[in-house]
């Protein structure tokens, strides 16, 4: 399977490294970052690509643009992991549309295009007879989309609830365990590289809400948007609140919930018993799916990371290869 890789940041690098290291039957035939591009229909030499990127900051020739890659390169699937604004979805949405238009499969880790234009993009993919997959957008390495589509097929999904933001979970874990104030825990999260310089997107629950929208639309196809989510962040929580919860055998976590029957679409800090399955430590993510037949299923795993996210992307790619090879 030939792939074109858009973006060579943390996730793109993880994908390239794993494709190089593991015998997956995947060849990278084109790669682009924000400043340059590189094509080799016979397969890009990955170690020299990564070395070049590290040394010069460019992956290839500054004369080759992303648009060139999408339109001209030889590939079966586009792996779209370019730096993208999750609130506008650009430039990633435009790239995905162009590749689907060329009847190429697309796999992305970018939340913006899926949460804003998911319905359109899915329809376009269907029309063109190709796949559009985005396992990596929600809960990192946790294969929730695959579970919903396959393992739980035939089940009616009644509700979902989970911890979808590792940064918030890390901050709350540290506040509970060490009695840190919110500001202290945030500072620590920044030092560990878990929080951005501007933490608003994480701590006010925006990131979790976008992931909740993606999951909700993937399951129920209800066309929800970020603005439909009732959202409360963790930035006003106090160390005392965590202590008061602790005295009661409980703790506080930022929980995303969706249940169409009760019209709940919400991200908010909630009190949970400390032995509740969604109470996970550090940057972990957790997700409980409630269905009519299987009842509750809880998944716990890493929500971010270079290789962890690559796991979700590669899972999508190999699924596409198997599915479409069988059809052909």
């Amino acid at each position: 399977m030939k792939i074109a890789l858009l973006g060579l940041g943390s996730v793109g690098r993880g994908v390239a490294e794993m494709v190089d290291k593991k015998d997956l039957g995947i060849t990278i035939t084109a790669v682009a970052d924000s400043k340059s591009g590189y094509m080799d229909p016979a397969g890009v030499d990955i170690p020299s690509l990564l070395a070049r990127k590290k040394k010069t900051g460019h992956c290839g020739d500054t004369g080759i643009t992303v648009a060139d890659i999408i339109k001209k390169a030889t590939y079966d699937a586009l792996v779209e992991v370019s730096p993208t604004n999750a609130l506008t979805g650009e430039p990633s949405t435009e790239y995905i549309r162009a590749a689907l238009g060329r009847k190429k499969h697309v796999v992305t880790s970018n939340k913006g295009p899926v949460s804003l234009a998911g319905k359109d993009l899915r329809a376009l993919a269907r029309k063109k007879g190709v796949a559009f997959r985005y396992e990596a957008t929600v809960a990192g390495a946790i294969p929730v989309m695959h579970l919903l589509e396959h393992g739980l097929s035939g089940n009616e999904i009644l509700s979902i609830s989970g911890v979808l933001n590792g940064t918030c979970n890390y901050i709350l874990t540290r506040m509970a365990d060490e009695g840190l104030t919110y500001d202290q825990a945030l500072l620590e999260a920044r030092e560990m590289g878990y929080a951005e310089a501007d933490p608003t997107y994480d701590v006010q629950g925006i990131d979790a809400a976008i992931k909740l929208v993606i999951l909700t639309n993937a399951i129920w196809d209800t066309g929800k948007k970020l603005a439909d989510v009732e959202r409360t962040g963790i930035d006003l929580l106090t160390a005392d609140a965590l202590r008061l919860a602790e005295e009661d055998g409980c703790t506080i976590r930022l929980i995303a919930e969706s249940c169409p029957k009760t019209h709940v679409l919400r991200v908010s800090p909630r009190i949970l018993s400390k032995n509740h399955p969604l109470v996970v430590e550090g940057t972990l993510n957790a997700l409980t799916l409630t269905t009519d037949m299987a009842k509750e299923i809880t998944l716990i795993g890493r929500g971010a990371g270079s290789v962890e996210t690559a796991s979700a992307i590669i899972g999508d790619l190999l699924y596409i290869r198997d599915q479409y090879a069988r059809r052909a």
């Binding site: 609830s161 409360t232 006003l236 929580l237 609140a241 919860a245 409980c250 506080i252 929980i255 908010s268 800090p269 909630r270 009190i271 949970l272 018993s273 509740h276 969604l278």
Partner: peptide, 8 residues
């Protein structure tokens, strides 16, 4: 006031 409710 910020009201934190139990999940269950």
């Amino acid at each position: 006031l910020l009201l934190v409710e139990p999940l269950e």
